[in-house]
Simulated scan of single mutants.
Amino acid sequence: MSKQTAYIVLFRGVGGATQLPVKTLRAVLSDAGFANVATYINSGNAVLSSPMTGEEVTAKVAVLVREKMDFHKSVLVAGLEEWEELVAQNPYPQAVEEPTKLHAFLMERAPEAERVAALQEKTTGTETFAIRGRALYLHTPDGMGRSLFAPKIEPTLKVAMTARNWRSVLALRDMAAAI
């Protein structure tokens, strides 16, 4: 049997009008041959294992949820090793005590330098961000709900992405590590 890799699968834009029922999602992914499928809260998070590459998992999951669940938004996938690196490279260790004020965005790819410079010019108030590869870390001391900066990130960087608070980041790491 070929080696299985644990993956974290994030669905962009779940919540509000866009739902992705987790029971159905688990069934769709399991029926497609993914192993150890589990979901975390009802907001577009799954872990699974597969011998495929991350790119192959991304493509297959995107097709499955589009065809079987009518979900047409970006799917972002990180292997456990990449996710552990994302956790280890957190530039805001002082913020982990308030996990709802620290967010990690998984981006489709690392953004272009001029886009990052443009984003830097838009930072406001107490918020700060840092980019490590295809991860963007956002510290919002006043809370994400009040952030005027957060909505500017994706349109400025021009890269598909999705964010999770630090509590979710750690929970997904632990779930994937348990596979």
Rank of each mutant, 00 (worst) to 15 (best):
K3S: 12
Q4F: 10
Q4A: 11
Q4N: 14
A6S: 15
V9R: 06
F11E: 11
G16Q: 15
G16H: 12
G16E: 06
L20S: 12
L20Y: 09
K23Y: 01
T24S: 11
R26V: 06
V28Q: 07
V28Y: 03
L29C: 08
L29V: 09
S30W: 02
A32Y: 06
F34K: 02
F34T: 08
F34G: 02
A38G: 12
I41F: 05
G44H: 07
N45G: 10
L48A: 10
P51C: 04
M52D: 15
T58C: 14
A59C: 00
V61E: 00
V61R: 02
A62Y: 08
R66G: 09
E67K: 13
K68H: 09
F71E: 05
H72D: 14
L76Y: 08
V77Y: 06
E81K: 13
E82I: 06
E84A: 03
E85T: 14
Y92F: 15
Y92A: 03
V96H: 01
V96S: 01
E98G: 00
K101L: 00
E108H: 15
R109I: 02
A110I: 04
A113G: 04
E114Y: 12
A117T: 13
A118I: 03
Q120H: 08
E121F: 03
K122Y: 04
T124S: 11
A130I: 01
G133L: 04
R134V: 04
Y137M: 01
Y137F: 14
H139L: 05
P141M: 03
M144P: 02
R146Q: 15
S147V: 09
F149S: 00
P151S: 11
P151Q: 03
I153N: 11
A171M: 12
R173C: 09
M175P: 06
A177I: 12
A177D: 05
I179R: 13
